[in-house]
Amino acid sequence: MVRDFQSVIGSEARRQILQVEGRLPHVLVACVGGGSNSMGLFHPFYKDRSVRMIGVEPAGRGLRSGRHAASLARGSLGVFHGSKSILLQDKDGQVLGTHSISAGLDYPGVGPEHAYYKATGRAKYVTATDAQALDGFKWLCRLEGIIPALEPSHAIAYLKTLARSLKPKDIVIVCLSGRGDKDMPILEKALK
């Protein structure tokens, strides 16, 4: 249901990129907490096999620190909030506490469709730490004058890595799922 409502993102992106560029994008990049905005972007491109999809999970203070919310990177199969999917849990099936600098990604589970995309290889999932997200945030502010929320700042952060494998004419769509005004108190502390 969430996917269906959010898919307005991907449907519009697909129509607009075809209008403007006359071709499909090479890569889609979006942040993944519970996975709503990313699945909204990805799903309408599901059948476009040439389009690569990359979900960026929050690695918080690092995957090894245990202070993160990267469910697909570090989780296992379980039942949580009404779905069978991948989640961060201990050996007794208790759901683990999470951390991310962005409140919107701070969630121990992930929508089951992402678990499916990962299992089938349709999408690739990577992570970005709090520090990398802050870098991504600053980068977009300076280059484009756009203040992204800390959630999509994770997706932007991954662009630095991704760009090395792209050609200049390749098209990348990044989902800017929210604006950063709401994050100013956090940013003020973090960037001091």
Binding site: G78, V79, L87, Q89, K91, D92, G93, Q94, V95
Partner: peptide, 9 residues
């Protein structure tokens, strides 16, 4: 019991 602890066992 909620389902997950049972599934974990």
């Amino acid at each position: 019991s909620y389902a997950n602890p049972l599934a974990a066992m």
